[in-house]
Design a protein around this nucleic acid. Structure first.
Length: 624
DNA sequence: GTAGGGTTAG
């Protein structure tokens, strides 16, 4: 899309009344609603005036454009100002700094701070607050806290804006406990009453919401009471945050209690709090109840918005009720509610989930016609769906089309392609893609390596797997239990029993904490390799060492898979009677309630089959 | 004239 700058500068600049508006408006805020094109016309106009207007007039214009989030345009304007030999002042530089931070280029922001020094100004609390915000936006909350500490060390006193920036970002990044601690600290006087951060409704709201979202529900509720105790009365937004936090933390009953309390206080719920409730109800699988809430909203005259419809549509899609989702999609249009990219994505995902790819494609075309630009999530969703039904050709074509829509593939996109190629027997293509990603310096994580290792092992390309395993170590990646399970399984599958056993023993000796899946994988390999004695020995050893109870403590308890694997192994060998005691023991373990919890259907069915088989077998087994 | 601030969807 062409920026407003290009369009403005491609046409002859016209002297506009706006120019004089910017030259003479005392109150900058009064021009916040300005259209970027008009602002740029005025800007170009002002640049040509002789004598040049004051830098402050240019600042007003740049500030106005920055408010419209057209940061690229502000940067363009900054360069034109410098080229025109105008001297940027501290305000100009701070506007520029804020633009870079909002564009998630805090590195360039720090560069601007250099410029602030170079031009003889000193960074102030505004500079640092902006940078703290910029760092947080790039998920560098730790660096933001370090910077905050540093400025205090430099003797710069944070003001309420600096505190609000940091506390808000901490709450949003899952660090509400830290935020609360800081808030408490900021509330202490340190002998200077002018520096105390006074109790404040918005700070409380941020903290309550954050604490609940992070799972500290009791602390959140406690803070809510504390706030009321201090005479700060919660309003709709405070209640919404609390209710949302409680819903996210799974305390639906509590959320409902506060909703009722809010209504009793005479606070009328708005569309946002309804949306929060609808989402929570959908998540608990009661989509019809959520649908009832939509009707209630309409009844009381609270207009549902695109969030409302989309949330509910997503609820239906998750239950494979695509027709209901489609009806809602139609209702949305009938009610004059604009369908945005999220809404289309939800429905495309729904169609993909129930494998109606033609419908998904129709919708994709419709959204383009509707001038709704597909985004990264549209493509990632659609690609996943196409690969799932084996439409590899269509997936390739869609991927090739991303550029046309100015959407850059991300790491998830490549993972979808990689998995998709592997799952659809395009082994060579998958490996080629992986190699390209590796060479192009893509930051591949251990999970991606695990995926490729697994496929290589399963394709009996053990040499390549070993080579790749060495390479990931060289890269400094740390293998996980999954990596080792894959390798152990790979060795067994490729008949390298000795290597599998050696690897397992090395891991045990080195004190590496194995999980039950790794043990199961090892047991499975041993059983299939006919090494029942070894499997039995290991199992006995685990008991002798008291390791089985330890395994239980560490969430690594033997599960149904363990017993199923061992039972099958013991039964299928020629001298099954030898393991009679073990088989009986395993069966009694299986009957234990704890083993039966969290068992999937397939595993359960396997168990039933095993048990039936075993009953027959056991009849022929003499007690040992 | 420059920074921040409470709630919602994929």
């Amino acid at each position: 899309m062409a920026s407003a700058v290009t369009t403005t500068f491609s046409r002859t600049a016209q002297r506009s009344k706006l120019s004089s508006f910017f030259l003479h408006t005392a109150n900058y805020k009064s021009c916040s609603g300005i259209n970027t094109n008009d602002a740029l016309t005025s800007f170009y106009d002002m640049l040509q005036m002789k004598p040049s207007p004051q830098i402050s007039s240019f600042n007003k214009l740049m500030g106005a454009v920055a408010k419209t989030k057209n940061y690229q345009d502000v940067i363009f304007m900054y360069h034109r100002v410098v080229e025109a030999n105008l001297v940027p002042d501290s305000f100009t530089l701070h506007i520029l700094l804020n633009c870079y931070c909002n564009m998630k280029r805090v590195d360039l922001g720090f560069g601007v701070m250099g410029g602030i020094f170079k031009r003889g100004y000193s960074p102030n609390i505004v500079t640092f607050s902006t940078l703290i915000n910029g760092l947080s936006m790039e998920d560098k909350i730790g660096d933001a806290v370090v910077l905050f500490n540093k400025i205090i060390g430099m003797g710069i006193q944070p003001n309420i804006i600096a505190w609000a920036t940091l506390i808000n970002r901490l709450c949003k990044s899952g660090n509400a406990e830290v935020a609360l601690w800081l808030y408490r600290e900021a509330g202490k006087s340190n002998g200077r009453s002018d520096l105390i951060l006074k109790p404040n409704l918005k700070f409380y709201a941020m903290l309550i919401h954050g604490l609940c979202k992070d799972g500290s529900l009791d602390k959140g509720k406690q803070l809510f009471s504390e706030m009321k105790g201090r005479g700060i009365m919660p309003n709709l937004v405070t209640y919404s945050g609390l209710i949302h936090g409680l819903c996210e933390g799974g305390e639906w009953e509590e959320a409902k209690r506060f909703f009722i309390e809010m209504v009793d206080q005479g606070i009328r719920p708005n569309v946002i709090v309804f949306n929060i409730l609808i989402q929570a109800i959908c998540k608990s699988g009661k989509t019809d109840e959520a649908s009832g809430l939509l009707n209630l909203m309409i009844q009381i005259g609270e207009e549902p918005n695109s969030f409302t419809y989309t949330t509910l549509m997503n609820g239906f899609c998750m239950e494979n009720r695509i027709e209901d989702a489609k009806d809602l999609f139609a209702l949305m249009e009938a009610k004059g509610c604009k369908r945005d990219v999220v809404c289309y994505n939800v429905l495309i995902n729904g169609y993909c989930k129930c494998q109606k790819l033609e419908e998904a494609m129709r919708l994709f075309k419709e959204m383009v016609r509707d001038e709704c630009k597909p985004d990264l999530i549209t493509f990632n969703t659609f690609l996943t769906g196409l690969f799932q039904v084996g439409k590899v050709e269509d997936a390739r074509a869609l991927f090739a089309n991303m550029e046309r829509y100015e959407v850059t593939p991300n790491f998830s996109t490549y993972r979808i392609l990689l998995d998709g190629y592997f799952n659809n027997n395009c082994f060579a293509e998958a490996i080629e893609l992986f190699n390209t990603l590796e060479i192009s310096g893509f930051d591949l994580d251990i999970e991606t390596y695990n995926c490729v290792l697994d496929r290589l092992c399963k394709a009996r390309k053990l040499d390549l797997a070993i080579e790749l395993f060495k390479r990931l170590l060289e890269k400094g990646l740390v293998p996980t239990v999954v990596t080792y399970s894959i390798m152990i399984h790979g060795f067994f599958k490729n008949n390298c029993h000795a290597e599998a056993i050696e690897l397992f023993h090395n891991l045990e000796r080195s004190g590496f904490v194995l999980d039950i899946d790794t043990y199961n994988c090892f047991f499975d390999g041993l059983c299939k390799a006919g090494k029942l004695e070894l499997a039995n020995e290991l199992f006995e050893r685990l008991f002798e060492k008291g390791l089985v109870p330890t395994m239980e403590k560490e969430g690594c308890a033997p599960n149904l898979v363990t017993f199923n694997t061992l039972m099958q192994g013991f039964c299928s060998c020629n001298d099954a009677p030898k393991f009679g005691t073990r088989i009986r023991f395993n069966m009694s373990c299986i009957r234990k309630q704890s083993i039966m919890e969290h068992v999937d259907t397939a595993e359960h069915n396997q168990m039933v089959t095993n048990c039936q088989l075993l009953k027959v077998l056991l009849c022929n087994i003499k007690e040992v």
